[in-house]
Nucleic acid binder design. Structure first.
Lengths: 145, 145
DNA sequence: ATCAATGCAAACCTTTTGCACGCGT
DNA sequence: ACGCGTGCAAAAGGTTTGCATTGAT
């Protein structure tokens, strides 16, 4: 069975990009946080904590590239740019429930769009944004202790 | 009948703030764009186009204040800060359909939250974000000409 | 060997802050 | 007259760009 990193590196190469140390490290760090969004500046900081020689320019540039390749998802939350590794379910449409405490992301099975399509007669819906925030079951338990 | 600006100025005064020329002008510009979100930097630019002596510091500071007073709504879209005058329906919970072409905002009558509350057992939903984007009926008509 | 990717420094854009002056109350 | 609000300049924070050097293929 292929790992998510193997799949990702394949996509990077197929995109015509070279597999540098920096890109490998970035993919590793992203993969470690597989199921959560990470603040981009935190990712950048953590990256240069692990590899002090790496420049933040490289982090930003590559996240951009990965984003174009569909390997990471970007989102804005609380005015911050957040980033998440996206390797499987590549083309599936879904929304998220995001835990404010641990940052874990759960995919929702339902898309609320259907309920709204008939509400705005004559218009054309081309995009939508839907996210839930709160405490996941685990963190809810911890919080009530 | 009271105008939205009159209502807004009242709220500003009641908040303990002075009614300066700059604040009046800002409220006017916001009121002109009553039903749409405006990019904050655009608003800033337009403001100093109309009143070249006004400093952008003042725009940002007052938008902040207005936001705290509930007079403007802020939102992030495409990585930009957008701002909308909010005078009536002050405390009503609602979501938006936002036209990508003319920027007009329509309020939706339904909140999709209800459909999702039972989907994540054990967790606590504390916030959600939901916006639709597209072309409003008017712009859809224009687009198909 | 080639050309893309990196690191560095500097620019950039949006937003915030400190401070002396001016204006609304 | 008092003190908040303004303008200015400068800083801050995140992100992008230009360019010479390094490194993957």
């Amino acid at each position: 069975m292929e790992t998510t990193i193997e799949r990702a590196t394949k996509i990077v190469k197929q995109g015509g990009f070279k597999l540098t140390k920096q890109r490998k490290s970035l993919l590793e760090l992203l993969a470690e946080n597989y199921q959560r969004y990470i603040d981009l500046t935190d990712l950048d900081g953590k990256m240069r904590e692990l590899y002090p020689k790496m420049s933040y320019t490289t982090v930003y540039r590559n996240i951009r590239e990965f984003s174009n390749l569909g390997l990471v998802e970007e989102q804005q939350h609380d005015g911050k740019t957040e980033v998440k590794f996206q390797c499987d379910d590549l083309h599936q449409h879904h929304h998220h429930f995001i835990c404010n405490r641990c940052g874990k992301v759960q995919e929702l099975e339902m898309c609320p769009l259907n309920f709204f399509e008939e509400q705005i007669p004559g218009s054309t819906i081309t995009g939508h944004q839907f996210e839930l925030y709160g405490l996941c079951a685990e963190c809810t338990m911890k919080a009530t202790n």
